[in-house]
């Protein structure tokens, strides 16, 4: 059991006196991020929906990035991975990341191929 808590977030930018304070600060941060996401989702700024990066809308990249940021703080501070040994943390974090990245890569590539078959091949499905 990790009794010693590391009481700083944002790479030491914010330091807290107690663990409880840190928890509430993380809640505030997560709420702000969620609010930004929802606001962007409702407004859908033209500049972000019409520009693309690596075949996907910039807005979607922003959503995914913010999600990963939220996931980081949930795992690091709520699940207190920040207080665990490096070896445990690496085993837990990098194993799924590696596998999931690979899975996403092959599935999305395959899906794009099928999309092209449907679009340009002699297949009629949209009738």
């Amino acid at each position: 059991m990790a009794h010693a808590h590391k009481l700083e977030i944002f790479r030491g930018l914010l330091k807290f006196k107690t663990n409880v304070q840190k928890i509430w600060a993380v809640l505030v941060f997560l709420t702000i991020v969620t609010t930004i996401e929802v606001a962007l989702g409702i407004i859908k700024p033209q500049a972000l929906t019409h520009s693309h990066f690596l075949g996907m809308k910039v807005l979607n990249w922003i959503f995914i990035t913010l999600t990963l940021v939220k996931a980081y703080y949930i795992a690091w501070d709520f699940m207190h991975l920040r207080d665990e040994k490096n070896s445990l943390r690496r085993a837990i974090v990098w194993t799924p990341i590696f596998l999931v990245l690979y899975l996403i890569f092959i599935l999305l590539f395959e899906a794009d191929y099928i999309y092209n078959v449907f679009k340009f091949g002699f297949v009629k499905w949209n009738f």
């Binding site: 596998l99 999931v100 899975l103 996403i104 599935l107 999305l108 395959e110 899906a111 099928i114 999309y115």
Partner: peptide, 15 residues
Amino acid sequence: SGFLASYGFSRFKFI
């Protein structure tokens, strides 16, 4: 992740 990735698969198929 398997569920969500296959969701992405179907979505990219019918993007």
